[in-house]
Design a protein around this nucleic acid. Sequence first.
DNA 1: AACATAATTGTAATGATTACAAATTTAAAT
DNA 2: ATTTAAATTTGTAATCATTACAATTATGTT
Lengths: 135, 135
Amino acid sequence: MFSIQQISDRLLEKDIKPSFQRIKIYDFLLKNNIHPNIEMIYNNLTKDIPTLSKTTIYNTLKNFEEKGLIISVNIDEKEIRYDARLITHGHFKCVKCGEIYDFDYNHDKLKIKGLPDFEIKKTDLNIKGVCPKCK
Amino acid sequence: MFSIQQISDRLLEKDIKPSFQRIKIYDFLLKNNIHPNIEMIYNNLTKDIPTLSKTTIYNTLKNFEEKGLIISVNIDEKEIRYDARLITHGHFKCVKCGEIYDFDYNHDKLKIKGLPDFEIKKTDLNIKGVCPKCK
DNA sequence: AACATAATTGTAATGATTACAAATTTAAAT
DNA sequence: ATTTAAATTTGTAATCATTACAATTATGTT
Ligand SMILES: [Mn+2]
Ligand SMILES: [Mn+2]
Ligand SMILES: [Zn+2]
Ligand SMILES: [Zn+2]
């Protein structure tokens, strides 16, 4: 899927030194498109890295986002979820099972009115509802 | 602006008994389109209602949202903001001053792809950036 | 090796939200 | 009007994600 070399290179592209923990965390995000929260990342990686600290995950993800390597998804009021998929897309959260789904939308046709002279840094389209599995 | 009678009626329309606290909280949201958090509401209303409890505000806002009287705005990772404006609109949060601005967009032209059989309950368009005042 | 710098870790603090039970208010019944 | 029941409000304690901070460990350089 993704070699350690590939992952290291992508980290370096964003001026992030490819430490063992950073590689593992980014690798997890790339391989699991589940928009995990800190807990999910921790529980999965702690098998391989028993010494891993949650603080490291928090710091790493903040660093990743600042450098533009990943995005944070704030569709959940309770916790921040993370996503390594950088192509513009929206997020759907099922209020029953809590799962977060990706979806595409016609972002190029989106017309924002009334924000002249506003500098836009991030646009999020978040939808809540019930997924087919839960209906 | 809004008479107590008008506010009571709108609460009753949504099957919410117009208690003194509920009227005051809804009145505050109607008169102050600032997307306040709990703290802002508490600090403002506690002048008039010294006995007001934050728990009441939490319960009331949850009740309001469930009944469809207001919406919650989750653009802020830290806290929930509240809005009595029910017309479809987006929210812009300035990352410098923290202020949240309303904006309109062509919601009717928005095409969601890849969510067949998903039941949509709430659509949020959230933008982050820097407002003119902070540039 | 000795030193400086960066990264990681563990623990404590923060702060918004929720749980819960007691107190108060409101409405209904007698 | 008094009593009773139900709804609402309140205060306090608990929860839980996130952050602050200092100590430890790893990495790189002379
Ligand atoms: Mn995604
Ligand atoms: Mn608004
Ligand atoms: Zn579901
Ligand atoms: Zn601003």
